[in-house]
Write a protein that binds this DNA or RNA. Structure first.
Lengths: 221, 221
DNA sequence: GTTACATTACTAACCAGTCAGTCATTAATT
DNA sequence: AATTAATGACTGACTGGTTAGTAATGTAAC
């Protein structure tokens, strides 16, 4: 704890005090780096800027991460939580119709991932994939493949129970994942820099996507 | 002057000779720049690399474009062809069902845009939007808005003719555009750097998307 | 031989990464 | 409790390499 805090001096207008907080630094740096990488891309964000946003000097950044590239990799790894096991179990226990399941899947995904900082990682990966093919492959394995798998299992359940038509599972999964990816890209890219042209309400977007996905465009004869 | 030239070594297989081709240069530079910007992003591509790919020296690049940023803007402008008037007319003249129209729309779009270099611009814009908000706004006005408009008109036709259900047009358009954007991102991002994990056949992808979009996942009762 | 295009060599700015030094904190000593 | 010593997290000026942009020089075409 810093002296100023003990004494009760207003620190906000005073020069920020030098503090030793070994535990908190890495997390704060990763947070700052995620923000900036998502906003400006890898090459265009400066290490010093990341440090400044984390309230620390550039030297400190390199105390915790050996290089900018390793920082990038750490940012990605940090945000890849293996929550798929948990989700698989949730959906295993689900009792309603598969249509309800699809709706729940997309709504919950938005709440737990899409709306959070974590979705920035997807934008980051897609934007930088070709500069970091190893990271892209890693993300493919750790996130995309399990995600596709979960979606595929949901669709298969619908087919098995006679609720859904016979589907080309390899490609039908994209009908669920593509709208999610699109929403993320809007949130972090065009939507973030020209919001006046994109007053996109995520809930309404997802509702519309699910409705059309389940019932199709055409009137039922 | 290189050693080989001084000695008199055959240069024709070593390097192309110096040539004056004022007319062709800008186009060749723009082509090279598009490739590299799409592949590596704006900040990470070097001016010298663009020049080299166009078979020219760095100085020549700056002879035709005053700065790297202006080169970027020119790349985007070059590839924004106002083909929407022509397309609008094509669809105005279309006689079949609106379902056929939707399928034609996506198939033709892939042939004329998605599969060509032009689709790289979309990836570029989405990746760099936040570093170039003015470019993003420009692209929004010149490409996205007219595109959305065309799609909206198709969906409205379906509604008016009683072929489609009553739709939330503001959001239903995304059911057509989102899969297209997703396909572009796969082509230029993950799909380009880990193709073994993404053996994505565009035709089959589009067929699947259109089928589900028209008829929905659920069996018809 | 003059013009116009092209190249090469150069400059200035920028930025990732380093390192000698600083100072808050804690432990030891009186 | 007060003083001193040791620690190590943190700093920021510095370095070396890179690159956008420029200027001097070269050469093909007419």
């Amino acid at each position: 704890m810093s002296l100023s805090k003990l004494i009760g001096v207003r620190t906000d207008e005073v020069q920020a005090k030098r503090e030793r907080r070994k535990e908190a630094r890495p997390g704060e740096l990763l947070d700052a780096a995620l923000d900036l990488f998502v906003e400006k891309g890898f090459a265009a964000t400066r290490a010093e800027e990341v440090a400044a946003r984390a309230g620390v000097s550039k030297g400190t950044l390199f105390l915790y991460f050996p290089s900018k590239e390793e920082l990038f990799k750490a940012v990605v790894r940090e945000n890849i939580s293996g929550r798929f096991k948990e989700w698989n179990e949730e959906f295993q226990a689900f009792e309603g119709t598969t249509a309800e399941m699809v709706r729940a899947c997309m709504t919950i995904w938005w709440e737990r991932v899409g709306a959070t900082k974590a979705s920035g990682i997807t934008k980051l990966i897609i934007s930088e994939a070709r500069n970091f093919p190893d990271i892209a492959a890693f993300y493919q394995q750790e996130v995309i493949a399990p995600g596709q798998d979960l979606v595929r299992r949901i669709l298969k359940r619908g087919m098995d129970r006679g609720e859904f038509r016979v589907l080309d599972l390899d490609y039908a999964t994209f009908s669920i994942t593509a709208p999610m990816v699109f929403l993320i890209m809007m949130k972090h890219s065009l939507g973030a820099c020209i919001p006046q042209d994109y007053p996109l309400d995520p809930q309404r977007y997802i509702a519309s996507q699910v409705d059309l996905l389940l019932d199709g465009l055409q009137v039922r004869k």
